[in-house]
Structures are given as structure tokens and as C-alpha cells.
Design a protein around this nucleic acid. Structure first.
Length: 621
DNA sequence: GTAGGGTTAG
């Protein structure tokens, strides 16, 4: 009965639009009054909270003085504000509180501070605002002053709050305060640790928990995913299922993110069919995670199918789709989709522009990219980030407009970062401009002296122009500076199992077969007139010590394994942690022709779709 | 008759 009475008030956000005029609200208000449905204080509180949470804050405030003030009403208001789009308003309401706050009030304030901190850290790539950090401290201090800091809800909230502002010391202190932490408190700590990248400590805590519920499992899962340990995340998911823990949306989203990271398409598709077969509702978050998984596994058609089937799309959805098209080399489609997005009134943010600019870059759409960059400021009033400047340099440089790239850098209103010089360096490599490359390298190493990828790029530039002295100079430079190259690793999924290959590694159980296959591949390629680029092989900086190492580059090993194990006609999908080297790229193109196989190779930052001897990147990467 | 922990884009 009581629940039915509450209906009109709690349903308010859906009854009236956020832009409804006061007259319409008065009508509803009058109706509720006359029918007696606002008689009890709790219904009144619900009504006020509903108004506040549907952006009718001013009307909600009008209602406040109409009754004797109750904490219920005011706390409801605080809750609505803390959860709303402007959590800061909760503090204003708190200051005007006509009654002494209780422990409920403080959970809402802690929540508001947490949301503010989260918003601040996602808006910019820099560490969270000092102001938000101070705010968190003062909320906590106020809770102490009012004697409500010992409440379990406030305490676990404080742990999450300090994690959101990135204050590791405060997180530990807040957790240490808790006399007898329950599952929720420990899980909050778990989440805080893994958000700070300290998954191993989080795991210890997790293993020590007397019993873990599904939220604790999820916190652990996302911890692994966040630091890029996708394999462990999937392993944990297996354990979770064995333990019979209920699998909900949050779990699946994390699992999909792990699949996306690893390029584990089969596992990702398993999640998709799991969702479908159980008739689960595909929420925006789940849909976006699915779409992103497909893009990052190189299956753009499925990604777009998911996108089109979604009934609700937020900025993450749009940006993920745009970015998927961009990284799969579909620049025109990316721009098209961006226009569609603009026409729906969805406002792009900085991340969206990164995606669109990258789309322009892969397709060589210089003018469009320039227009897009300009529209950021003019039309969308968004200040470009360093990333956007980097994208522009990449756009000009990749298209061969090296002068434009240099002029663009010179006209930047902010100091260029390593990404900008890295983009110029890469452009120099594509267009064989050793002098410009040297300049970019000089600038880059002044900022980041030990960038291994940059050293490899420069060496490639020298090797390309047969400047072997230059190559060995770079090699010595790396030695003397102690620059360690991250070992190349290629992964391929077969029957749901991901196999990893490192350069020249012979440890795979089927190495003998792989070796035989590699020999067969070389033989077939030679018949087709392919000659390995032997001079460059000798100076391949990635593997100078190993004889013939280039023929054992990780992507070649994975490719051979794929040819052995995957039935004819299926696409071979390989995920590499670094960029593909030129020789492997040429080699793979040939393989796609000679073996008549479609090969999809995911690079460090984009996709190569090989088919009939050509690559979707048009040899610009 | 109000609360707390886990979920998507670079």
C-alpha cells in the first residue's frame, strides 16, 4: 500500500521532462496534494527528492519551508543532489541545513565529494584538483566534528572518496580507522587499491576475506583489467564461475574489457551469446563494452551492428564507435558517423575529438581534420589538449605535409610534448626524411630520454636510407643510456585459448611444426618472387644478437601457428604489443595473397587488415 | 521512512 502511494512522487522524473515549466509542476503538485498523496512526511520527502533529481531544483527548494523541517526531507534532497549532474550543489544545501546533520547526511556528502573527484580526474589527464582533495578532507573532518565519522557507511564511503581523489595515504588511514570492517568496507578498500594500480595488495586482501560476494569479485576483476593484466582477469572470471558466484552486468563488462585488451574475440563472442541467450537487457554500458570489444578485435561490422541495435547511446558509446572505425582504418566512415552524432545533438568531448582526428589521419583527410580541429574551439568551445596537437601533427605528417606539420608545431600555444615529437618522428620515417627525424628525436629525447619506441623508429629511418653508421650510433646510444626495448609479443587465439609468442622463442609445444611451417612459407614466398630484405635484417635493432632473428619475429611465429591450426577460410587474428615492423608487414601482405587468407593484425595503436596482398593501412602506419 | 563496495570511450 505504502509503495503504491509513493508512486506518483518517485515517478515524477518520467512524468515531467527536465524542461517542464513551473506551471506544469504546480499542476502535478496540486494533484498530489488534493489526492492526499503528499500527506505523510516521507511522501513529501520523496516528492522533493524527485524534483531535485529531475533538475527541478528551484521548485524543490520552494517546497522545503512548507513543512516543519525534517531530516528525512533534507537528506532526500542531499541524496538527489549528490547523485545528480552537479554534486557540488549538495554542499550548498548542506550549509543551509536547518537541522543538525546525521550519519545519513554525511554519506551523501561523501558521495558528492567522490563524484566531484571522479569528474575532475576524468575531465583532464592531469592529477585531480587540489581543491577537490581539500574538499574531501573537510567533508571527513565535518563528519568527525558532528560525531558521525564512526558510521560504517561513512567510513567505507571515505575510503572510496580518498581513492577518487588519488590520496593513497588517506585511503590507508581511513581504512585503518574502521574497527570492524564488513564486506562492503573491505571491498571499498579493494577497489581503492586496484584503482591505484596496486592489484597485488588488493588480491591479498581479497584472498584474506572470510567470504567474497560478487561485488568483491568484480572489484578484483576490474583491478586486473585496469592495470592491463587481462589474462589474469579472465582466469579470475573462470574461478568466479567455478565458485558459483552470480554473473551480472558489471562482471560481463569487465570481462569484455579484458577480451578487448587481449583481442580475444572468441571469448568476447561467448559473452555476447551469454547475454543474448539469457535475455539480459543490453544497457548502454554493456552495449558499449560489447561494441568496443568487437572494434578492438577488428570486427568492425559486428561493432557497428551492436551500435545500431542500441536504443540508448551516451558519449562513451559514440566515442567508442568512432574510435573503432578510426583504428580499423575507416576514416571516411568515422567522419560520417561524427556528423550523425552532431546531428543528434550529442556534445563531443576531448576523447571524441581524439577519435575523429585519428580517423582523419588514417584516411589522409587533411582538410577535414583541420576543420574538425578548428571546430573544437569555435563550435564546441573545447580547449585542445596536447593529444589533439599530436593528432594534428600526425595528420599532416602522415599525409606527407611535413612543412605543415612543422609549422603547426611552431604555432602551438603550449609547449609540445613527447607525443607531438613522436608523431613528427614517425612521419619522418614514413616519408624517409632523416634530417627531420633527427630533429624530432633530439626534441623528444630532451623530454623523455629513454623512449624505446623512438629509438627504434630512428634506427628504422637510418636503416631505410642504408645509413648503417646511423643505425649503430642509435644502438650505442641505447646501450649507454640503458634504454631497454620492450620485447615484441604477438598473441593469437585458438579455440578460446590465447597463445603468446615472443621474438625467437622456441618454447611453444608445437614449435617443431611452426618451424616447418615457416620454412614452407618462405619457400612459397620465394617462388612468388619475394626476397627478404636481408640488409635490413642484419641491422634489425630489435634483435641484433640473434641470427636470422627477423624471420622469427613474434608476428611471424603467430602467423605460422595460425596457418597450422586455423581451418582454411577463417580469418587469422593476431594481436601485437608493439608496432609491426616493415618486413613483417610486407611479409604478411604476401602471405595473405599466397595462402589466400584474410589476416587481421592489431598493432600497438591500430589495425592492419591484410587481404589479397594489400593492407588496409595503405602502407602508412 | 533515506545509506556504503563493482560496470563503458583516448
Amino acid at each position: 500500500m505504502a509503495a503504491r502511494l509513493r508512486d506518483p512522487a518517485t515517478l515524477l522524473p518520467s512524468l515531467v521532462g527536465a524542461s517542464s515549466p513551473h506551471s506544469r509542476l504546480r499542476e502535478i503538485h496540486a494533484h498530489l496534494l488534493v489526492s492526499g498523496r503528499l500527506a505523510s512526511p516521507s511522501h513529501h520527502a520523496d516528492f522533493v527528492a524527485s524534483l531535485a533529481s529531475s533538475s527541478h531544483l528551484s521548485y524543490a527548494r520552494l517546497l522545503l519551508p512548507r513543512r516543519p523541517a525534517t531530516l528525512l526531507v533534507h537528506n532526500g534532497l542531499l541524496r538527489a543532489l549528490a547523485r545528480g549532474p552537479c554534486p557540488g550543489l549538495a554542499f550548498a544545501a548542506f550549509r543551509e541545513l536547518p537541522l543538525a546533520p546525521d550519519h545519513y547526511s554525511f554519506t551523501f556528502l561523501v558521495r558528492a565529494a567522490t563524484s566531484l573527484a571522479a569528474a575532475a580526474s576524468s575531465a583532464t589527464p592531469v592529477p585531480t584538483d587540489v581543491a577537490v582533495s581539500l574538499l574531501a578532507g573537510s567533508v571527513h573532518a565535518a563528519a568527525f566534528r558532528h560525531g558521525h565519522a564512526a558510521d560504517l557507511h561513512v567510513q567505507s564511503g571515505a575510503v572510496s572518496m580518498y581513492a577518487a581523489v588519488g590520496d593513497v595515504g588517506a585511503v590507508r588511514a581511513a581504512f585503518a580507522e574502521i574497527m570492524s570492517p564488513d564486506v562492503v568496507c573491505v571491498t571499498a578498500m579493494l577497489g581503492a587499491l586496484s584503482a591505484g594500480g596496486d592489484v597485488d595488495t588488493a588480491r591479498e586482501l581479497f584472498d584474506r576475506m572470510p567470504q567474497q560476494d560478487h561485488v568483491a569479485w568484480n572489484a578484483m576483476l576490474t583491478g586486473y583489467v585496469r592495470v592491463g593484466r587481462a589474462r589474469e582477469a579472465l582466469g579470475l572470471f573462470d574461478e568466479m564461475q567455478k565458485a558459483g558466484v552470480s554473473v551480472g552486468e558489471a562482471t560481463l563488462v569487465s570481462v569484455l574489457t579484458a577480451c578487448a585488451q587481449m583481442g580475444a574475440l572468441e571469448r568476447g563472442m561467448w559473452v555476447h551469446s551469454y547475454v543474448c541467450s539469457r535475455g539480459m537487457r543490453v544497457s548502454v554500458t554493456l552495449g558499449t563494452a560489447l561494441l568496443d570489444m568487437y572494434s578492438k578485435c577488428g570486427v568492425v561490422t559486428m561493432a557497428m551492428e551492436v551500435f545500431e541495435s542500441m536504443t540508448e547511446r551516451n558519449i562513451y558509446t559514440w566515442t567508442s564507435a568512432l574510435s573503432g572505425l578510426a583504428m580499423n582504418g575507416m576514416g571516411e566512415e568515422c567522419l560520417e558517423l561524427f556528423k550523425r552524432m552532431e546531428s543528434t545533438g550529442m556534445e563531443p568531448n576531448g576523447v571524441t575529438f581524439v577519435a575523429v582526428l585519428r580517423g582523419c589521419s588514417v584516411a589522409g583527410l587533411v582538410e577535414e581534420g583541420r576543420a574538425c580541429f578548428d571546430s573544437m574551439k569555435d563550435k564546441h568551445k573545447a580547449e585542445p589538449w596536447l593529444e589533439h596537437y599530436g593528432c594534428m601533427v600526425d595528420l599532416y605528417g602522415r599525409a606527407g605535409c611535413l612543412d605543415d606539420a612543422v609549422n603547426f608545431i611552431n604555432s602551438m600555444p603550449v609547449e609540445p610534448h613527447e607525443g607531438v615529437w613522436g608523431a613528427l618522428l614517425n612521419a619522418s620515417r614514413i616519408h624517409n626524411n632523416a634530417d627531420l627525424g633527427k630533429h624530432a628525436m633530439y626534441k623528444l629525447t630532451k623530454i623523455e630520454s629513454k623512449n624505446d619506441a623512438a629509438h627504434v623508429l630512428l634506427s628504422n629511418i637510418y636503416a631505410e636510407s642504408h645509413n648503417w653508421k646511423g643505425v649503430s650510433k642509435v644502438r650505442n646510444m641505447m646501450k649507454s643510456k640503458g634504454v631497454k626495448k620492450v620485447p615484441g609479443c604477438s598473441a593469437i587465439e585458438v579455440d578460446g585459448k590465447v597463445h603468446e609468442f615472443f621474438v625467437g622463442s622456441k618454447s611453444h609445444p608445437r614449435y617443431k611444426d611452426i618451424e616447418t611451417m615457416l620454412a614452407g612459407m618462405s619457400h612459397k614466398l620465394r617462388l612468388q618472387g619475394y626476397t627478404a630484405n636481408t640488409k635490413e635484417v642484419l641491422f634489425d635493432i630489435e634483435e641484433e644478437e640473434k641470427e636470422g632473428a627477423i624471420s622469427l619475429h613474434s608476428e611471424k611465429l603467430a602467423l605460422a601457428f595460425g596457418l597450422i591450426t586455423l581451418p582454411e577460410g577463417t580469418v587469422i587474428r593476431i594481436v601485437k604489443n608493439l608496432r609491426v615492423c616493415k618486413d613483417c608487414h610486407d611479409y604478411t601482405k604476401m602471405i595473405s595473397k599466397v595462402f589466400d587468407r584474410e589476416i587481421v593484425m592489431r598493432d600497438r595503436n591500430r589495425f592492419h587488415h591484410f587481404k589479397h596482398g594489400a593492407c588496409s593501412c595503405r602502407d602508412y602506419w
